[in-house]
């Protein structure tokens, strides 16, 4: 893969979405985004106006999350939040899909929910967070197709607050489903340059991470050894390893774990690797 520090930076949405985020933190990450040439900063909607002020003289884009992190508010409220964020300076909207509705099989609601935000966002690109850790593969494929039909521009794996986070498996599946006409954003648990490398290789063209600076700076290590990119044990990046009974619906959890039973790498699933 022909990846440079600069190219990697241009794929990153530099992110801070925590409840305890202070304005000083927003200022810090906006400054870092300019320094490192990140594609965008990704913030809660309350911080968008401030970020727009800070980034007025730069080409760093501003991305606002909407309906975050649960996605279970009304479509009207999501659309209102998106519209206000765009008015305040957001160039992109990362909305959370209504996961419960999808699990209910209520695809019309899921679609209209997304359409409402797309319509409210005007020229701003809309990314739809599927929260893949709450879904089985069949549902992820279904969700991707709905997003495409609803006019979204990107599908995105995770909020970072749900189970599992981004995995190369999910990114690959999403890319295969949406094709090249949509973007795929990997987010959630991407903290090292190797994490980033894996999801890019799987088809991601955008990365959401709070560790953007470390990812880019540490990528400089790659020039000094090829050993960093040695393949990992298959289980390390497999969503089935990351599945958690405490964080996932039981049937979703069991779906993931059932895959282990028939997995060709079952013998690699060794004790405390």
């Amino acid at each position: 893969m022909d990846l440079t520090v600069e190219k990697l930076a241009k794929m990153i949405d530099h992110t801070v979405l925590k409840a305890d985020t202070k304005r000083s933190k927003v200022k810090e990450i906006c400054g870092e985004a300019k320094t490192y040439g990140f594609y965008a900063v990704c913030l809660n909607s309350v911080h968008i106006a401030y970020a727009a002020e800070l980034l007025a003289d730069s080409d760093v884009k501003i991305c606002s999350v909407v309906g975050f992190p649960l996605g279970s508010m009304t479509s009207t409220s999501k659309a209102f939040e998106a519209k206000e964020a765009v008015t305040n300076g957001a160039h992109e909207i990362d909305m959370v899909m209504n996961v419960g509705a999808l699990r209910d099989g209520n695809t019309d609601f899921v679609r209209s929910d997304i359409e409402a935000v797309v319509a409210a966002s005007g020229d701003a690109h809309v990314k739809v967070i599927l929260e893949t850790g709450l879904l089985i593969d069949e549902q992820k494929v279904e969700a991707c197709l709905i997003c495409k039909e609803a006019g979204a521009h990107f599908v995105k794996t995770s909020t970072g607050f749900g189970p599992m986070g981004a995995t190369p498996h999910d990114v690959r599946l999403m890319r295969e489903t949406v094709g090249s006409s949509m973007g795929v954003k990997a987010a959630g648990g991407i903290s090292t340059f190797k994490d980033a490398w894996r999801v890019i290789e799987a088809g991601a063209d955008r990365i959401g991470a709070s560790a953007g600076v470390a990812i880019v700076e540490d990528f400089r290590w790659a020039q000094y050894s090829d050993s960093w990119m040695e393949p990992d044990k298959p289980c390390w990046t497999c969503p089935s390893r990351k599945a958690s009974m405490a964080k996932q619906p039981k049937e979703v959890y069991l779906w993931y774990k059932q895959r282990c039973v028939t997995c060709e790498h079952r013998d690699d699933n060794v004790f405390y690797d």
Binding site: T192, S227, W228, D273
Partner: peptide, 20 residues
């Protein structure tokens, strides 16, 4: 896992990193 996590049981590539 600093800067990235490598398989601690693996020997491939480790001589190179030790030298680095």
């Amino acid at each position: 896992a600093n800067p990235v996590l490598l398989d601690r049981d693996k020997t491939t590539g480790k001589a190179d990193l030790v030298i680095l």
